[in-house]
Design a protein around this nucleic acid. Structure first.
Lengths: 181, 181
DNA sequence: GGCGGCTATGCAACTAGTTGCACAGCGACC
DNA sequence: GGTCGCTGTGCAACTAGTTGCATAGCCGCC
């Protein structure tokens, strides 16, 4: 399970509350590891029990107290242990691929429309990634260490979305030719 | 949940036992929807309760009886309903990306080695996909209907693995330049 | 003056997925 | 003669992830 480790990486970059982490998991690190606020709160609690993080309660007025978490030495050690571990490549689960494969058992046009929807999503996502790259990494060749690594992860997102976009286009073209309306 | 639907698609192509389905999920359809034999047996049982499949018990000698499942009319209807449904794009979970992003908090060289391991895995997987394409779809432009859809899904796998391979190479080159040994 | 959205946390119940084990006979290999 | 792997099914226990709800005050909008 890598949620703990994704949280450790994120908290190491900047301490924060469960709520803030949930925001970060809606973007940035969450582009490569999805998580809801529920999961994050539960996991932070467990990590606190394990002493991988320390929580500092901060009173606020006008809103509930918040707990600012930061990585402890034990947490950093655990992260280093995990980084040395070998892991299996992520298991894939693409309902869209299953739908395409089953298209001829239902309405292929409805499936084509679903592919078009996904195409739009991937195009948007790609725009977001490219905008981040332009803004945060204007000179990629000058990068080192942490900043380099952040950029490389973003590059992975860009390459994945480009491939998905091309695939959607290929599928749409082939299905249109197979069944011209 | 698409496991039921992946099973429906697979059983519609050819009826089979839980064991056979588990084999298929180790390759072919399983390249796009991972599942263990445990999950498959449990799901088949539930699908049988829902009358989406029918089971025919076949006695064998020398080994346990087997249950050959096939899709029922209700199952086909459910599949058609699902094909018309819109779904969200798959949530991603790439521990490798998390590891790269955290590389500078541990040993970047160990992470680079992990990237190299994944690179080998993706290169192998790409070879498998290309071999299947060459063998099963020698003339892609002549395909229609079900065969076309099967090929398009395979194309998605090829494009995804190509993108991952290129990404691994980019990461390895950049990390080597950042930290030449 | 009400409604929705933001910050902030969390419980409870559910669904899905993983891991380990068990049974059982066959054939192949060493 | 024993171990390993294949076919075939399945239970039990666990871990992970999702969904719905609750609390609670603030702010801005219509």
């Amino acid at each position: 399970m890598a949620l703990e480790h994704a949280i450790l990486v994120s908290l190491d970059e900047r301490p924060g509350t469960g709520y803030e982490l949930a925001r970060r998991f809606d973007k940035s690190i969450g582009f490569f590891w999805a998580a809801t606020h529920q999961q994050i709160y539960r996991t932070l609690k467990r990590m606190d029990d394990l002493r991988w993080v320390t929580a500092e309660e901060v009173a606020q007025d006008g809103r509930p107290d918040k707990k600012v978490y930061r990585v402890s030495p034990e947490g950093r050690q655990e992260l280093q242990r995990w980084l040395r571990e070998t892991g299996e490549p992520a298991t894939v689960r693409h309902d869209l691929a299953v739908k395409i494969r089953g298209a001829s058992l239902g309405d292929p046009r409805a499936v084509a429309e679903e592919v078009a929807r996904h195409r739009r999503h991937h195009a948007e996502r790609l725009d977001v990634y490219r905008a981040i790259e332009k803004k945060d990494f204007p000179d990629p060749s000058a990068l080192h260490g942490r900043r380099l690594h952040q950029h490389l992860v973003l590059r992975g997102g860009i390459k994945a979305e480009e491939a998905l976009l091309e695939w959607c286009d290929e599928v749409l073209a082939a299905m249109r030719e197979d069944d011209p309306r």
